[in-house]
Nucleic acid binder design. Structure first.
Length: 490
RNA sequence: GGCCCCGUCGUCCAGUGGCCUAGGACGCCGGCCUUUCAAGCCGGAAACGCGGGUUCGAAUCCCGUCGGGGCUGCCA
């Protein structure tokens, strides 16, 4: 029997990293077992759904590289894979269950229910539906509905009864139906609830493994009983531990970036995100941290997912992103950095500029943790008006700066072939003549040429920037230093 | 409150009765390298929540306790 797994996000918010992790584990298991990975949109919450969120989620899945075999956008034997297109099916299922007396009409209004809930809470009684309408004879219920009275459909939880199942990650779970109330299947306006739609789809789409967040563990007895009432065999469940914020609470906005899209914009590589997410609750054999996707697929197993929640630690993701950036070929690096450089410069680069960028790329690559850092590092190569960081200037331009800059200009003017080794030789002999160490003597030049105390290696930077620009910038800096000295005297 | 899940360094994982004086990774601290910043290399601090049992022997099994989390909606 072939495995069929799905990710069923609700488009009620942007793609969350937790959704990403759940999707990844489903995908890994599907690929590992040679099964089918399905993307379904669980959009039964009309009030909160939005097309933008759906687009964001789909984009996030694609960015992560989690391709799907059936589902939204790619089709398959089950229609659009969007629940809002199957309301008729769910209604039919609910009514059938009523006919078979596995469900019943409930005439309690939301306001009434809220009042009774409050009362129960005040009296220290357990909340949950009290079953008031469960005993209404079906003939009477049909008559009342016929008279126009609004009614929801509730599932008749088999009581007394117990649901027992073997969760792939949690192990044996046993819940007494005494603690599971008669939940709503169909709202009084005819729309299905999550429980109905999701379970019906899992049955109709022949989902073999349901791997989802642990927050749904308490709902699982409902889903299993519903599945059984539908005459189907229950899926194998795997409840994944939740992802927490650094304070141990469920990961949310106040913990920083929780949206996958935010990480795209912040310059993360999908490979790094996938690798990091795969380690949240799972680990391949041995002491490895950087795992290839092929190895993850080969080694992944839902049964070896850990049972305890994981804190999302961005500093480890950050480190991993640097690792992945460094592992890129120069061509791949340039391709990945391209949109970020353009955004940073605010314009497209000319072919000649791309050429220069390609020359300096290997040096920049090993200094890059986020793709957003590339632009600022290379900006000095592509601008006529160099912006000099005032703090950096202040720090390095001492009393002897004018003399140093003058010496550098004189020395560099003599360089016959403008390339790295010649420039280095020339500047080193200058340092020797001035009796300066490299740290003292080169930092002012770095600031004059790149605008910052932090830059790619100076000699290469000069070589790639070109003789004229380097000399011009050094001359500008010297002029500025001289003017400042004059101002000081007045 | 009730029901359910969980409990190894700050964090993510390894560990499934003896190989554990508990291992790896991130982070942190110190050092080396060095034209800045990174990267790299070397070293260090850092954990089995607590209490009982079972056993020759427990991080590993059982019970209790404490702590954390989830659910408790005509949200998902």
């Amino acid at each position: 029997m072939t495995t069929r797994l799905r990710i069923a996000p609700s488009p009620t918010g942007a793609m969350h990293v937790g959704t990403g992790r759940t999707a990844l584990f489903n995908w890994l298991y599907a690929r590992h077992s040679g099964g089918t990975f399905i993307v379904r949109i669980d959009d039964t919450d009309d009030e909160r759904n939005s097309a933008e969120f759906e687009a964001d989620i789909l984009a996030g899945l694609r960015w992560l590289g989690l391709d799907w075999d059936e589902g939204v956008g790619v089709g398959g034997p089950h229609g659009t894979y969007r629940q809002s297109d199957r309301y008729e099916r769910y209604r039919q299922v609910a009514l059938e269950l009523v006919e078979r007396e596995a469900a019943y009409f409930c005439f309690c209004t939301p306001a009434e229910l809220a009042r009774r809930r409050d009362e129960a809470a005040a009296a220290g009684k357990p909340p949950g539906y009290d079953g008031r309408c469960r005993t209404i004879p079906i003939s009477e219920a049909i008559a009342r509905r016929g008279a126009g009275e609004a009614a929801a459909v509730r599932f008749k939880m088999p009581r007394p009864g117990v649901t027992e199942f073997d969760d792939l990650v949690k192990g044996k779970i046993r819940v007494d139906h005494e603690h599971v109330d008669d939940f709503v299947l169909l709202r009084s306006d005819g729309r299905p609830t999550y429980h109905l739609a999701s379970t019906t789809d899992d049955v109709d789409y022949e989902i073999s493994h349901v791997a989802r967040g642990e927050d749904l563990l308490p709902s699982t007895p409902r889903h299993i009983q519903l599945t059984l009432a539908l005459g189907a065999k229950e899926a194998t469940y795997a409840h994944l531990p939740l992802i927490l914020g650094t304070d141990g609470k469920r990961l949310s906005k106040r913990h920083g970036a929780t949206g996958v899209t935010e990480y795209i914009e912040a310059g993360y590589l999908p490979q790094a995100m996938v690798n990091y997410l795969s380690l949240l609750g799972w680990s391949p054999a041995g002491d490895v941290t950087i795992v290839s996707l092929a190895d993850s697929i080969r080694l992944f197993d839902l049964a070896s997912v850990s049972t305890n929640p994981a804190v999302f630690d961005q500093s480890k993701l950050d480190w991993m992103n640097g690792e992945y950036i460094r592992s890129l070929s120069v061509v791949e690096f340039l391709e990945a950095a391209r949109p970020f450089v353009i955004a940073s410069m605010g314009r497209e680069l000319s072919p000649e500029e791309w050429e220069r960028l390609a020359r300096i790329a290997p040096l920049v690559q090993e200094r890059t943790k986020f793709l957003t850092e590339v632009g600022p590092q290379v900006r000095f190569l592509f601008t006529d008006e160099l912006e000099i960081d005032p703090i950096a200037w202040e720090k390095v331009m001492g009393d002897d700066a004018e003399e140093l800059l003058g010496a550098a200009i004189a020395e560099l003017e003599l360089v016959a072939i403008w390339e790295h080794d010649e420039i280095e030789r020339s500047l080193r002999s200058m340092l020797e003549r001035l009796g300066l160490n490299a740290r003292k003597g080169l930092q002012p030049l770095r600031v004059a040429v790149t605008g910052s105390t932090v830059s790619p290696p100076l000699f290469e930077s000069m070589a790639i920037l070109g003789r004229d620009s380097v000399l011009a910038r050094l001359a500008d800096a010297r002029k500025r230093v001289a003017n400042m000295a004059q101002d000081d005297h007045r």
